[in-house]
Design a protein around this nucleic acid. Sequence first.
DNA 1: CATAAGAATAAGGCTATCCTAAACAATATA
DNA 2: TATATTGTTTAGGATAGCCTTATTCTTATG
Lengths: 218, 218
Amino acid sequence: MSERTVEEYLESIGALEERESPVSTSSIAQVLEVSPASVSEMLRRLLRKGLVEYHPYGGAALTEKGRRRFLELTRRHRLWEVFLNRYLGIGWEDVYQPACSLEHATSDLVAEKLGKFLDNPDVCPHGSPIPKSNLKRPKVPGIPLADLEAGQAGKMVCVVSESNSKFLRYLTSLGLIPGAKVKVLEKASFDGTLTIEVNNSTKAIGREAASLIMVEPV
Amino acid sequence: MSERTVEEYLESIGALEERESPVSTSSIAQVLEVSPASVSEMLRRLLRKGLVEYHPYGGAALTEKGRRRFLELTRRHRLWEVFLNRYLGIGWEDVYQPACSLEHATSDLVAEKLGKFLDNPDVCPHGSPIPKSNLKRPKVPGIPLADLEAGQAGKMVCVVSESNSKFLRYLTSLGLIPGAKVKVLEKASFDGTLTIEVNNSTKAIGREAASLIMVEPV
DNA sequence: CATAAGAATAAGGCTATCCTAAACAATATA
DNA sequence: TATATTGTTTAGGATAGCCTTATTCTTATG
Ligand SMILES: [Mn+2]
Ligand SMILES: [Mn+2]
Ligand SMILES: [Mn+2]
Ligand SMILES: [Mn+2]
């Protein structure tokens, strides 16, 4: 019985709910790289288990029970990311995949002890908030860097696409890591390409990429 | 596809090979709590994958490839046990189960970094040797405590039944943990029950239990 | 050596998860 | 509003694992 599969579905749905609610079959299919037909089938199964609300052709939403499970998993995922990064020295661009496996192999006891060992950190290496043991849904903070105007400055808080190694390596090369100070020098009115200043050096970044970076304006 | 299942089979077979070679269908069935028929089927599957040698009615043995996979998994399992025990403070009686899940969720990179972080320990919390990265099969050291004669003394090296929490808690209560000095004061000729001295106190232990404790005679 | 007991496999079935192709619903567009 | 496009579900089928029951091997024993 692959409990694992159910958990991956819950995680996708939970993450997608930040942007889209209810969540469409096709979004889930895309994230999980699975056919829409398989998703339909699974949604019926999750409905029977009381993990999602679901009306055919109407999309899905986590129930209270599903949401709790989702936050538990997110907490575990991000705690492992912190461990892998801080203690094993694995770069932020490579922690997502291993954490995505480890999260499913983590008992309540291990999760609790791991949290204590790491001193219950507030954020993962990508800057995303770690749900507390009380399992309140944490607020993703900040606004997209792409939304700043020329002249505005901000402090980077987190990145949205945590599993894309190539993108994260690219950000590292720009000096764009959580906590970095960014100032927008110019914003192309044509396509929104930004000229920014990070660490006293000037860089360019496309609108698409800049929309995945969350900053707190200062 | 549950790679996990294949791995559990390899681990059982590898462990059983210490005592029995080739390994019988029924032993595997017993360890994995699965029907003999299921084992037969799985052995054919492992054969096709080149992980075991297998002749119907003739039992199974790991191939070179299977053995390598087995040692890799054993190494991961025991490294996690060390981590759980040493850093998360989970007792030796409770580390087996979580490690048995984590081992399957451990990439080569994480295994290597974890080994380094832990300083490549030689043994797990139960005293069992941890295969090195070079994957040579380590020798289980010592002889059963049950084989000592009255008057003989030894140093405990490891325990054989690592997943039996109740047994391990019992040993803890006797002061029998790896490294402990034991002296056999008496050995009942009737059923081999031992009277032993550990930590300057006298205890009794049955032959059955004493046969699961490995000691180095001194 | 014949046979009974025990071990292993074969046969037939079940569920979870995935797929493709076909049918159907919702929506956007003319 | 009719129609084309797009999204979703159904139908039908596959595979991995597991089970139970029946059959076939192997081995121990008289
Ligand atoms: Mn995962
Ligand atoms: Mn993260
Ligand atoms: Mn395991
Ligand atoms: Mn151990």
